[in-house]
Design a binder for these strands. Sequence first.
DNA 1: CTGAAAGCGCTTACAG
DNA 2: CTGAAAGCGCTTACAG
Lengths: 339, 339
Amino acid sequence: MRIRIGDVAQDDVARVAGVSQKTVSRVLNNEPNVRAKTREKVLAAVQSLQYHPNLSARSLASNRSFLVALLYDNPSQSYVMETLTGVLDACEPRNFGMMVKPLDSNAPDIAERTMSLVHKRRPDGLILTPPLTECGELLRTLKDRGIPFSCVLPHDPAENIGVTMDESAAACEITSYLVELGHRRIAHVTGRMSHSAAKWRLDGYREGLRLAGIRYHTSLVVQGQFTFSSGVMAARTLFASRKRPTAIFAANDEMATGVMWEAAHHGLMVPNDISVCGFDDSPMAEQVWPPLTTVRQPNRDMGRIAADQLLNTLEGGEGHMRTVPYTLCKRESTDSIVA
Amino acid sequence: MRIRIGDVAQDDVARVAGVSQKTVSRVLNNEPNVRAKTREKVLAAVQSLQYHPNLSARSLASNRSFLVALLYDNPSQSYVMETLTGVLDACEPRNFGMMVKPLDSNAPDIAERTMSLVHKRRPDGLILTPPLTECGELLRTLKDRGIPFSCVLPHDPAENIGVTMDESAAACEITSYLVELGHRRIAHVTGRMSHSAAKWRLDGYREGLRLAGIRYHTSLVVQGQFTFSSGVMAARTLFASRKRPTAIFAANDEMATGVMWEAAHHGLMVPNDISVCGFDDSPMAEQVWPPLTTVRQPNRDMGRIAADQLLNTLEGGEGHMRTVPYTLCKRESTDSIVA
DNA sequence: CTGAAAGCGCTTACAG
DNA sequence: CTGAAAGCGCTTACAG
């Protein structure tokens, strides 16, 4: 039981077109030095025979797989799906395939596991997403072995190709927005602090306070883990404090949703009793009540751009580190303090 | 710029092991007729040389790709991710790779698009997820051309291999649960009626009513689209009716969340003013307030099982249609009517 | 139980 | 601008 394709080979196309196999190959690969007339004949034969190149043969001969691998270790299913879709957006028109590989960023042998994938499937390059981009050992291994890769939001954008976003500026902006609404006791629920994103967002929060002349209080900062339940826990801590904040900025939407969940559980109305905002603009941001004020990170675009940078280098061009803009999404979960 | 592997070939292993290349191939493919001693020698050589087989060469020679393609057209990112993860669970240990392919189930040329993928990437088989399993033309094309495929929740389980679940029974059970809680005016928000799942769930709802001796009222059934916003709209319709239902069973969690959203918007308390339940047990079910009563569909398991059935047939074994059990998840979004 | 030969369908390297 | 030859690293089909 096996898929059998027409089994038309370049050979057959060549015969029909009245040229050599090599010429068919040239046309198919858009190589120069083919007369327009010859090209046409070949293309016509390809068409009439319904010829489809055999990628295995091409890979074997050229020692390339025309495959990229997307590596991830992110609890957010929507994040991974958006990124994956973006990578596919980039791969499709350039005739590359994509493999996906979930990895545990805390595994001590993560570099070996990655190399095992590289040996088995031989992707031409890799795309790393946070928090895998934080694994120094992994990045070093890939660089040492000369394996091309591209990063989404790496710790050090200057040293990699891929895509990044000014998360600190975004976090600063959303904090400033809370200030504009009249809030002064603004709490922050951080992400897992080993992730750069958590640091960037905390930095932005502090900068937002500084710009408004509001003192930074560690009592208003609670550590989360980027998960829903850590948002619930953080909110519990904050609600128990003597002087409750009037607004909470959670470092991602998942935690912000947890904060809202706990607020409801605690009998607090959002935004009347407390304003809540998040970060990412994941689908849930619009599906909770009230809709969540957040920062939109264009994950699909970022996946596409990261993949494009990688493909550029694979095709002999140049890969860069691109920066995408963010958008502040003002919704109903935040309100003016003197409503 | 290209990944270069050690480039150890079977040839090299054969030389080191002191056997022929064919024997190395036999050992690697677990073929019979190799002396234990010989096998050991080969394995030792493989180990010492860090040999990794070249899949392209293997594919070219054997005319198999060792690849399956997961086809989807589902708006729920968590659904796709869970299924994909399940498929990966099955592929990993059997050394198959997975491609993913988003498709538009409404495209008139869906069969051609699929065949185009088949011609380009030559997967050994396909895995179809709803609603692609509803595309008669696609299924027919695949069968006609002898392309192996496996289905998740196909319209007609008896005619395919893969995995299914008794959705009607599950819908009946959750309806009965509402009845147990004392509800009699129970509304249903259907999914997109062209999907079998929508029909099965509606059937189960009707059966649940019938078992309780409650008459079926079309005024209590509103058409949705399986989307969040269609849930919002449906709730709006139901809340506007003269006699509001005391409970709403939405055909999936996405719509149930929309119903809850609209309830909040409308100033109705869940579950005090109205009970709401869904179907799927997607991650959001536990993240909304109050947590959503729903039916758990084990999507990851289903992905794994569907893939396993396909791989069985690809490896010369038998593929079956498996049935997985569901679980009723009782949470706080539903309550007794005389609380 | 083992091996020598041919061939899968391409690209590379070279020649003209 | 075009082509003949060799070879990529495996498996298949056959022989012993």
